[in-house]
Write a protein that binds this DNA or RNA. Structure first.
Lengths: 130, 130
DNA sequence: TCTATTGTCTTATAGAACTAAGACAATCAG
DNA sequence: CTGATTGTCTTAGTTCTATAAGACAATAGA
């Protein structure tokens, strides 16, 4: 069962964070067809947010055709988004973990790391465009 | 002169994106004391947003003691946030670029990459906590 | 001094997001 | 059938964010 995490400092709407964590779990293969998502009330209990916020996330995912709610049962995974090969992540993870350890050792906190990745991503995109 | 980029799909408020890009440039050493930020009107011209949005970002940075506005001149860097060694980033960049190339080759798009880094960051934090 | 540039401020409007509190219908276990 | 669980829906209100349009004071340069 997937567990959700909210980063209140990120500035991203909670319902978006939940939806994206599901999308990413689908891409990574952590979630597969027929897997069940936590019930709305379970999420509410763990994250201390409003049921409507969870509902909005699940409806968004339903709108994308990724999950389907079954009244009386819960919300289940329907399909997986078109994406990269399922096993790709396990191989990449090792290299990333090693680099993250390096970055931490250099004194970067998590926020700096994500920002650094984002800007480097943009920079290299501009490079290859030039 | 720093250039700002907005990601409308990120769900993060534009004023927060601008403020964070300045903070990160300060951490990386891209911006230093007495450097000038783009004028409010320059940013408005490039990003097609409201002056008040830029103003809000600059006020936030001013509140943090990072920059100061000088009427008639512009907004300038005052101090740098307590952070990691300035040269740390240049060394880390190489390894990151290599890993990003790998990730792209595996079929991951930018959004997946950032999500992957975020979750790996959280996972490894939980690991070391356990 | 005069003018253009710049930061700063005000007021009003609109939209998105989250919360609050409650209700209903479908499903499953007993 | 009955009760508990679950997804779904409604209405209302608050806060945050962004926009719009305009005005003022300080500064630098001609």
């Amino acid at each position: 069962m997937i567990e959700f995490h909210l980063d209140t400092r990120s500035g991203v709407a909670p319902y978006l964070q939940i939806a994206r964590q599901v999308q990413q779990a689908l891409r990574m293969g952590t979630l597969q067809a027929d897997d069940q998502l936590p019930t709305v009330r379970e999420v509410v209990g763990k994250l201390a947010i409003n049921p409507n916020t969870v509902l909005k996330a699940y409806r968004e995912l339903e709108r994308e055709g990724l999950v389907a709610g079954r009244p009386g049962q819960g919300t289940f995974v329907v399909g997986t988004p078109a994406g990269p090969p399922p096993g790709a992540y396990t191989r990449l993870r090792g290299g990333l973990v090693r680099w993250l350890r390096d970055a931490h050792a250099a004194g970067l906190d998590d926020e700096s790391i994500v920002a650094f990745v984002t800007t480097t991503l943009r920079d290299s995109a501009e490079e290859s465009a030039a």
